[in-house]
Write a protein that binds this DNA or RNA. Structure first.
Lengths: 206, 206
DNA sequence: TAGATTGTTAATCGATTAACAATC
DNA sequence: TAGATTGTTAATCGATTAACAATC
């Protein structure tokens, strides 16, 4: 009901629910229980019910959840019912790879601009987009209404890019560079660093 | 002291400590306090001390932590003091991008084999590695002593690849495909899915 | 109706933080 | 010695899970 603060853990699970619900919808499955969901997603059914209950009563007692209704609701909660424009800085291998997910993201989110500081990169084309030089960032981001920024530059450049994003009024950042970046409290940052992920996996080897 | 179970949250922070300590070492900074560390990494100093204390007494009261000693210790804890061989399946854009981090991973972890199911891909070369067909996986993984697998194939293929990894005796998997994969309990799986990460960011837009 | 499953409360479990004696 | 900072205990905070009345 949005009065209480929703924990980050809950918000991180919502896209996972959504993804699986979309799979069900494609298979023309109309209804799903928290039991089913929990089994497929390796989560406790009570947790799933509780997560959803933070936002409303989406299920029917004795029946379960209507798949397409729940999809609609989760998309609303995540604000994926609107178009959200994304910009990416760093047209290296990783940046290119992420741009190619554009089709995958359906309509909801879309990378609409790519920037790179290297003079040689500007003008290159990636999947319908043309790489732009950094000095065009402010203007392009304003014009296209970009709200989320992705950082795929080397670690030493990441903070600098983050600063520029903030300057442009970006509201949230997904940072792939292996470094903690600092931004004002009203800008949301998620870290998606492959190297730390891999290193923590090593711990679990025997 | 490894008798109690260490929480996942702790293990995930260790590589972040390590990364920053390496930065300090490069700047020839000899000593660091939990205070400093906390400030730079946006973490509570007490938490950092507690995390480290699970594994031993690495600091000096009144002084702080010796940077290079702590690096050595964390590398031991994470098992990064040995060479760990990694294999990757899915030589698409993302797979290529990750292979290029090889240099970045220093000596500790290394992607030593790349596989792809598409006949056209086999034989291609990525950063010193030659893409191999899937049927060579078992033999190569055994020969090279690969212990960790990375999945960068489309979602529909991911479970299949995971099964093959398990079959080959892989101990841990980093899955980039947007799907939950099922493996035996003794295989560790971490999910690194860019799309769910991005979707959860959208929630925090105003 | 009987069986199933939700939404929600209460219980449990675990993780973070504060506080401080020990000590460099 | 005085100041700083650890390692650790206790307090707090938050998240997960169990249980069950409500009800489809």
């Amino acid at each position: 009901m949005k009065t209480q603060k929703i924990s980050e853990a809950v918000v991180r699970r919502l896209p996972i629910y959504l993804r699986f619900l979309n799979e069900l919808a494609m298979k023309n499955i109309m209804t799903v229980s928290s039991q089913d969901l929990g089994q497929k997603l390796d989560l406790n059914p009570a947790q799933i019910r509780k997560d959803l209950a933070y936002f409303g009563e989406f299920g029917k007692k004795g029946i379960g959840y209507d798949v397409s209704y729940l999809i609609e609701k989760i998309r609303q909660i995540l604000k994926l019912d609107r178009h959200i424009q994304v910009a990416l800085v760093g047209a290296g291998n990783l940046g290119r790879a992420l741009c190619n997910y554009n089709t995958y993201l359906r309509n909801d989110m879309k990378i609409v601009a790519v920037f790179d500081a290297m003079p040689g990169k500007a003008g290159e084309s990636i999947n319908n987009l043309t790489v732009q030089p950094m000095h065009e960032m402010k203007q392009t981001i304003t014009k296209l209404g970009v709200r989320i920024g992705i950082i795929t530059v080397p670690a030493v450049e990441a903070q600098n890019v983050a600063n520029q994003f903030v300057e442009c009024g970006i509201e949230a950042i997904l940072n792939f560079a292996p470094v903690i970046i600092k931004v004002p409290a009203d800008v949301r940052v998620h870290h998606a660093d492959f190297t730390t992920e891999l290193q923590s996996l090593a711990y679990y080897l025997d």
